[in-house]
């Protein structure tokens, strides 16, 4: 079902993530989870599986659940395995005629639970071909335990385990490109998106991922006011800069075909994005101009490669 996106109609649906959860004020994760779940058709039910994360500890605190759907908290490393097991059980019950309704399976995990600790179970579930969606809300570090670096943290970022000192200045390695790794699994649908503008991109991709049969993957940029060190009211501005500087390009890969979802009207310098966040403050100190140059080069290279893939 591919209806034209209508924000007014979508926000009229009852929210599937309620208020009263304990995420920090201004957290991107709440916005993303509510946005993905909004893409479910009204009459369908969902099973939400959640790896240990900020999201998990704040949306499911006994006896309070912020979900209107069934929810399972799984450990850091096995949320995809848990989800695939529930999906297999559902299929078996359906086959025997013991279940009538349509249930969709959605896993949420942070970048720590996806890029690092949960990677093996994610890879396995995608390879086995379960009918599920895995959503990574990527805030580029272990925020729940106190802002430690992950393999998703960009180069030169200050975290508590990549501090600024005389021996090293922030993280030394580049961010792992997980979306491309998932594309290499040859799954039916993989996409990168963000809560941008009227949420059309996030909504359409979520709907596609949920209603495409087989394993699908969404990687969604999730700003974190505490970890990224920016004022908590700036979520929309930071997302806009991330896509307009091509730091976080929006694209999708459907049955092996790459498609660019958003081309900035004017590609902005990466420094415009970096400047908004205290975690990159180090890059703007005197003598560190080379860091900004290298960051720009890296983003340009990745963007060129993406353009080649998408033929744009």
């Amino acid at each position: 079902m591919n209806r034209v996106y209508d924000l007014k109609r979508e926000v009229e649906k009852p929210e599937r993530l309620t208020g009263g959860h304990r995420l920090c004020a201004g957290c991107g994760a709440g916005v993303i989870v509510a946005g993905v779940l909004r893409a479910l058709d009204k009459e369908d039910k969902a099973v939400v599986v959640n790896a240990t994360s900020c999201l998990e500890v704040s949306t499911f605190m006994y006896p309070y659940t912020a979900y209107m759907d069934s929810y399972i908290h799984s450990a850091f490393e096995n949320s995809a395995a848990t989800c695939s097991g529930v999906e297999a059980a559902y299929k078996a019950l359906k086959r025997r005629g013991k279940l009538e309704e349509t249930v969709k399976f959605i896993t949420f995990a942070g970048d720590g639970g996806t890029y690092d600790i949960g990677f093996q179970s994610l890879s396995g579930a995608m390879e086995r071909g379960h009918d599920m969606v895995y959503v990574c809300y990527d805030n580029e570090a272990y925020m729940n335990t106190g802002i430690q670096r992950s393999s998703s943290t960009p180069r030169f970022t200050r975290t508590t385990t990549t501090p600024l000192g005389s021996a090293q200045k922030g993280k030394q390695q580049h961010k792992k490109d997980l979306t491309e790794i998932l594309v290499a699994h040859n799954i039916p649908y993989a996409a990168q998106t963000a809560p941008l503008g009227n949420f059309k991109d996030l909504h359409i991709k979520s709907h596609k991922a949920i209603y495409t049969e087989g394993p699908c993957f969404l990687n969604i940029l999730s700003p974190c006011p505490r970890g990224w060190d920016y004022p908590m009211d700036k979520l929309a501005e930071i997302i806009k800069l991330a896509v307009d500087t091509c730091v976080w390009p929006l694209y999708e890969v459907e049955e092996g075909v790459w498609r660019l979802s958003y081309t900035p009207k004017k590609k902005l310098p990466v420094a415009d994005y970096l400047r908004t966040q205290g975690r990159f403050r180090n890059m703007f100190q005197k003598g560190n101009e080379w860091m900004i140059e290298e960051a720009q080069q890296y983003v340009d290279q990745k963007w060129e490669r993406l353009l080649e893939h998408t033929g744009a």
Binding site: G20, V31, P195, G197
Partner: peptide, 12 residues
Amino acid sequence: HCMLCIPFCPDS
């Protein structure tokens, strides 16, 4: 009533 604020509210 353009609704742009609704999906951006982290607390529904």
